[in-house]
Design a protein around this nucleic acid. Structure first.
Lengths: 86, 86
DNA sequence: ATAATATTTAGATATTTGTCTAAATAACTA
DNA sequence: TAGTTATTTAGACAAATATCTAAATATTAT
């Protein structure tokens, strides 16, 4: 849980996640959207990946990133426990 | 959204939220649970309050904290948008 | 009024985090 | 093989954060 919340605690990373909702993108395409250097975006992607919120796959010279919806399930259930009972 | 994720990005604060799920507690009761000084807990409570995740009410010399479930609704819907479509 | 209790505010400090530039790695192209 | 493109790794730095102790504020009790 810790890694997930850490990963989500950043506007840029949340935006990346929202972008990937529409489908996979490679690192360069993601970086273009922001006014942030590529190494910084690469770092953000690394954090999202460590949190298992996204996955990466090498496609030739590109690296394609995709949203990992199964972890989002975990997040959902954590929040749902707060709502229930009482 | 920013404040919510910032507030949730801490193990101690998440634990506090989970504790308040069972019902209101005052600052002292909350602090007792942790091996952290009272001023630090007070600071965590302040962050949770600014994020609107909890509310406080003065009860004599105590301050009672309660979970604010309506904000959790916002969080839920943000996460649900990630699951939907595709 | 004084003392005791509950909680916060203030100020300091060490750690974590987001960002940058420069260099490294890897894969295509001519 | 040499050059170009895509991405990451390394190292540095400023800003944000979690924690502490000491002091301030507020309430209750004697």
């Amino acid at each position: 849980m810790n890694h997930i919340f850490k990963a989500l605690n950043d506007e840029t990373r949340r935006k990346i996640i929202e972008m990937l909702k529409a489908g996979p993108m490679n690192a360069g395409e993601i970086a273009e959207v922001f006014d942030i250097s590529k190494p910084s975006i690469s770092h953000h992607l690394d954090i999202l990946k460590r949190a298992d919120l996204i996955t990466s796959e090498k496609k030739g010279q590109f690296i394609e990133y995709s949203l990992n919806t199964s972890i989002i399930e975990d997040l959902l259930s954590w929040i749902l426990t707060l709502k229930k009972e009482k």
